[in-house]
Simulated scan of single mutants.
Amino acid sequence: MSVALTSPAAPGHLHQQEPLRVMLVDDSVVIRGMISRWLGSEPDIVVAASLRTGREAVNQLERINPDIAVLDIEMPELDGISALPLLLAKKRNLVVIMASTLTRRNAEISFKALSLGASDYIPKPESTREPGAAETFRHDLVQKIRHLGARARRSATHPAAPAFAPAPDRLREATHRAPPVAHPSAPVVKRSFSQQNPRVLLIGSSTGGPQALMSMVAEIGPVIDRFPVLITQHMPPTFTTILAEHLARASNRPAREAIDGEAVKPGHIYLAPGGRHMRVVRHGTEAVVALDDGPPVNFCKPAVDPLFSSAIDVWQGSVLAVILTGMGSDGTRGGKDIVTAGGSVIAQDEATSVVWGMPGAAAHAGICSAVLPLNQIAPKLVRLFSGDRS
């Protein structure tokens, strides 16, 4: 049975102080009840409706008028991937977070959902009786709702800012639009690029990262051919397997999850596997991948900081790192280590980031030599790896 928990807010009169309105769509009464309890305890979030099928969500969207929809993939009558385009057709700026269990099929569907305009995805724990898994799910879901919802509202109240939509074609549109909404922090202070020639490219990303990565690797073939590329994307197991396959197709270069102990070679893209941190170590004259099963760093596993910090022991100041869209501040501490060792850091700008958390933290920490729109990062990398120091 569907239960609307609050009356809909009047469209066009949303204020930042008003709670974000969430529509839960899942055929499991257990999951709906659990998430409703979690979100109900957050002062800035309200569950506007709890629905059983995608059909109910499509039919009741105007009445509920949510800011965010948490949409299950597998449901009766109308599943999540079928409901997604119908929901976005009715409300273009709706933030849709796809929820699914960790299977290869669901990972594939989640990636398809991103290409159709879903804002993000979240893996559901295999068992809600495991306290650790449930708490991780709760933390991640609340953070995604809070950050993605806030971004969508800012876009709605500042028409010149890019409309929130992470699908690849809409990401490309965003790179050509007006400057981002002013950030409340201090102005960004940029550093000069390192005078050392970079010998490795490191990339860290989170929310919105898969789409940004696929767009970027398609344009940096000359870099990949001559230098190794190592990527940490906040993503669970199975999903990283699928992402590596997508990166291989987008770049037309070898890309796969990194293997513990393998040598790092030019011409390859190495992706941190879900659930394990990726570092690099020196073994004789070679750089070698080192995976570990340590605790989460910055609430993430894999995390960006371990990769960034470890790279300076191998390449010293010849490291160039890029921090793409994502929540939190992962990558800033490791980026500071890179800069201290003589390397350089580039951050994605706010206008083209799905969430300007990670790149914004790095930019305001004063460690970046450039803060660029997504479509300008790849050309800049090609020039830097070709010897341009400007």
Score class of each variant (00 low, 15 high):
residue 42 E to K: 00
residue 259 I to C: 03
residue 241 T to Q: 02
residue 135 E to L: 04
residue 66 P to T: 06
residue 254 P to C: 05
residue 41 S to W: 00
residue 385 F to V: 06
residue 134 A to N: 10
residue 364 H to S: 13
residue 156 A to P: 09
residue 284 G to H: 01
residue 312 I to R: 09
residue 86 L to Q: 15
residue 233 Q to A: 11
residue 215 S to Y: 05
residue 51 L to S: 08
residue 259 I to Y: 15
residue 241 T to N: 04
residue 332 T to Y: 06
residue 138 R to Q: 08
residue 383 R to C: 08
residue 96 V to I: 06
residue 201 L to I: 07
residue 58 V to P: 12
residue 374 L to Q: 15
residue 306 P to D: 09
residue 35 I to A: 01
residue 215 S to V: 03
residue 120 D to F: 02
residue 115 S to A: 05
residue 261 G to L: 11
residue 217 V to F: 11
residue 184 P to Y: 07
residue 224 I to G: 07
residue 21 R to Q: 10
residue 319 V to P: 07
residue 119 S to K: 09
residue 345 V to F: 03
residue 303 A to T: 01
residue 49 A to P: 01
residue 189 V to S: 11
residue 368 C to V: 15
residue 127 S to F: 03
residue 356 W to I: 12
residue 244 A to R: 10
residue 12 G to Q: 08
residue 367 I to W: 12
residue 271 L to D: 08
residue 377 I to Y: 01
residue 344 S to Q: 07
residue 366 G to M: 12
residue 243 L to N: 01
residue 96 V to R: 00
residue 382 V to S: 07
residue 100 S to R: 12
residue 196 Q to N: 14
residue 270 Y to P: 03
residue 368 C to G: 10
residue 278 M to G: 01
residue 105 R to V: 14
residue 42 E to S: 00
residue 314 V to A: 10
residue 84 L to R: 15
residue 54 G to C: 10
residue 352 T to C: 09
residue 195 Q to F: 12
residue 243 L to M: 15
residue 34 M to V: 02
residue 225 D to H: 14
residue 156 A to C: 11
residue 214 M to G: 14
residue 133 A to W: 00
residue 68 I to K: 00
residue 331 G to W: 11
